[in-house]
Nucleic acid binder design. Structure first.
Lengths: 125, 125
DNA sequence: GTCGTATTCAACCAAACGGTTGAGGAGGTC
DNA sequence: GACCTCCTCAACCGTTTGGTTGAATACGAC
């Protein structure tokens, strides 16, 4: 799990960590404040925080005895860029397919009620 | 890992699976076509596909002996919605903070109207 | 029917994950 | 100094993950 993107996705794959991110979007918090709602040990929360930090999603500073946690929203961009890229690609492909199907319907051999999956045959990309 | 969102994030946390999604965005493919570039067994690729399918990211149909894999781009929306929500929230918070700081710089008086939580100390930066 | 191809299922294994408890470390207050 | 609080590190444990190999299964071709 070396690469940045994998770490970010993996970090957000855990509901507890997503909840933490959600709360950190509202305001910074200390480890114990973050731990309060969950019934797991402080150490477990600290581990979750480490995962989020390793993914670059949060940063921690020192402030008296506490270590306030701060959300770094910019890292989200990495994900959205990746997602948007392939979603757009897939959607464009869909539109081309729709256009192609429309063309085929408009065009020649309309060949009866082909509601069956028969048309699926000629797939050769 | 019961919930939908966790499955989607977890599915995309693996570089091989992300690569498959990237390739499926271009065109549907069979399992062996998908497996070709990677030097892992076909079975391993089949497992990856199962993870993607469980997350709702791909669907598989049957067509002769092969099982073409198709990307379901709509599921991406789940993620982008989640991400955008909290990113926006965090960014708005930043803007409020910036405004607050600007205000404090403009009007040094600022009186004592602050809430009791002012223990937050002046955060350098 | 038999054969070949494409895919999945089953069993196994090492490594990572999410949790625990216990022992520190860092930094305040007395 | 002693003491308390907040937090992390270390060791351990059960479960999940990503990979393997070998044996089915599903389907078309012969």
């Amino acid at each position: 799990m070396s690469d940045e993107l994998s770490k970010v996705f993996a970090a957000l794959a855990d509901p507890t960590r997503r909840d933490m991110v959600a709360r950190l979007a509202v305001s910074d918090a200390t480890v114990s404040q973050l731990a309060e709602p969950y019934d797991v040990s402080i150490q477990a929360v600290s581990k979750h925080l480490k995962v989020l930090a390793d993914a670059g999603l949060v940063t921690r500073t020192r402030e008296a005895q506490t270590r306030p946690v701060h959300l770094e929203a910019e890292v989200f961009d990495l994900m959205t860029k990746w997602i948007e890229r392939y979603r757009r690609q897939a959607e464009e492909r869909y539109q081309r397919l729709d256009a192609l199907l429309a063309e085929m319907n408009d065009g020649p051999a309309a060949s009866g009620g082909e509601d069956e999956q028969t048309t699926k045959k000629g797939k050769a990309s």
